[in-house]
């Protein structure tokens, strides 16, 4: 365990060196939800409602999206494809550490640095929008469910991206595959529009796929829209997809290592 704490510290120090870079990546998580929020505000200003959302709920939803995108999204596929392309993976394979643990520590380091930018923006938003924000009173069970759904969403995102990264062992260049993954997240995860706004067939598709568990489900828990059996069913859905993604990665890993050629390593 201690070696992973050390890894975490090293990765954090490394990420701290890239504060400005982290601010630029933060724009990618910050601006799209904010723009969508401004569009919704214009809709409500003209007296039109949408999909049963109150104005307060919309503001909370999109502000929540900024937080979820910033803190839950990992980009482990970049690290993997970089390590594979450059042959750096050989270094980790020859050391007594779990390579997945190395990648996870790298992601956690970036997330902590992201907090550096998220915290002040969030404080500003709360100060400006304070009266318009009304977090629903969540009971103890819902709060526990929220915490659990956040942890599961992070883990699910990590393992989905891990699988995407493992594709790099075969494809070397995963730019196109990553774009297609991000396309699915864009429409089917609730990142840009709540699933309630999607037309029925698209919403049905979203409910069949794992992407809704990344953002949409934690956000609805935050809004107090699910409780009891529905909350439990959602958490179980997250666990099921997480198990499937982890199993797939576990099965693909030996084959990926056989494929690995240590180019340039």
């Amino acid at each position: 365990m201690r070696k992973y704490l050390t890894l975490l510290r090293v990765n954090l120090e490394d990420a701290l060196e890239y504060r400005v870079e982290a601010a630029i990546w933060y724009l990618y998580d910050l601006l799209p939800p904010v723009v969508m929020l401004l569009l919704w505000l214009a809709i409500y200003e003209e007296g039109q409602g949408l999909a049963g959302f109150s104005l307060v709920e919309v503001v909370t939803y999109y502000l929540g999206m900024v937080v979820l995108r910033s803190l839950l999204t990992t980009h482990v596929e970049w690290a993997i494809s970089y390590d594979v392309r450059m042959g750096y993976l050989s270094r980790y394979l020859t050391r007594p550490v779990n390579v997945w643990g190395v990648w996870l520590a790298g992601e956690l380091g970036w997330k902590v640095v992201r907090l550096l930018w998220l915290a002040p923006t969030l404080a500003l938003a709360l100060a400006l929008l304070g009266p318009q924000l009304a977090f629903p009173p969540l009971d103890g069970l819902q709060l526990a469910g929220l915490a659990l759904s956040l942890a599961l969403a992070f883990a699910l995102g990590f393992f989905l991206k891990l699988n995407l990264g493992l594709a790099a062992f075969w494809l070397i260049e995963i730019e196109g595959a990553t774009w297609l993954y991000e396309a699915a997240v864009f429409l089917l995860s609730g990142a840009m529009l709540p699933l309630e706004v999607l037309p029925d067939p698209v919403a049905a598709l979203a409910r069949l796929l794992p992407f809704q568990y990344l953002y949409s489900f934690p956000a609805t828990v935050l809004l107090g829209r699910v409780e009891g059996g529905a909350l439990l069913a959602g958490l179980l859905g997250q666990v099921a997809w997480l198990a499937a993604a982890a199993l797939l990665a576990r099965l693909a890993w030996p084959a990926a290592l056989r494929q690995y050629e240590a180019v340039g390593g």
Partner: peptide, 9 residues
Amino acid sequence: FLFGRVTAV
């Protein structure tokens, strides 16, 4: 999807 549900913004 969004503008299909509102008249105009």
